[in-house]
Amino acid sequence: MLRDITLGQYYPADSLLHKLDPRVKIVGTIIYIAILFVADNVWGYLLAAMALGVMIVMSKVPVRFIFKGMRAIIFLLMITVVFNVFLTPGRVLFQWKAIKITYEGLLIAGTMAIRLIFLIVGTSIMTLTTTPNQLTDALEALMSPFKKIKLPVHEVAMMMSIALRFIPILMEETDKIMKAQMARGAGFDSKRLTDRAKSLIPLLVPLFVSAFRRANDLAMAMEARCYRGGERTRMKPLQYCSRDYMSYAVLWIVLIGAIVIRVLLPAMV
């Protein structure tokens, strides 16, 4: 199941989106999220859907791969929908004892679900087309103003990049330790919650030990290669070119479009 999480994964391909400056992609994602929250009628969502559709096509990432990542959040999605459907007051469409479904409830649940799905798919397109290194470089560049107030921007970015690199390794390790303890008769499927929590100890202790060992090794390897934070040059420095400026222009136009739609056209609720 852990393997299903595509969020934060990189999918190598040769597409315009892959080549775009990662700063544009981060800003673009923020604008896209803004569009989602500005939208309050069908046209707004259509605009977001269009933007999403265009991005998916441009990314050259197989649609199946993008939506595989959704499996992990389906539970979250269900909870949101159920809560909204049953707990929103308004015009009652259906009632059975204390349970009632309202028009507003359905509407809000529907829009919430769409927003959530759009949000996840949109952000995963960013991570699918951007290597974590580019991502952290871009974050560092975008956050560099905060360096003035002594925020360790570079260090935070480096930490993120390393964390991303080690996620698959630690997942594999979890699987291995789990199997090793199962071979010693451990069960991870107990019905009682307390037993279940207890059964995690033989998994978590070795996992922590291993994570610390790896961290220690990695720190040593980085120091051995003269890493000392701060002053470094870049193998792949971030440089805007014409397609990046064009993309910025398109992004702002779409955002303005979304605002115009919200102001001029009536809301659904």
Partner: peptide
């Protein structure tokens, strides 16, 4: 190995 791509990892030392 620090980099996400082979070439990025090899570039890490010279960057430093």
């Amino acid at each position: 190995i620090i980099g996400q791509l082979v070439e990025e990892d090899v570039g890490f030392g010279p960057e430093n």
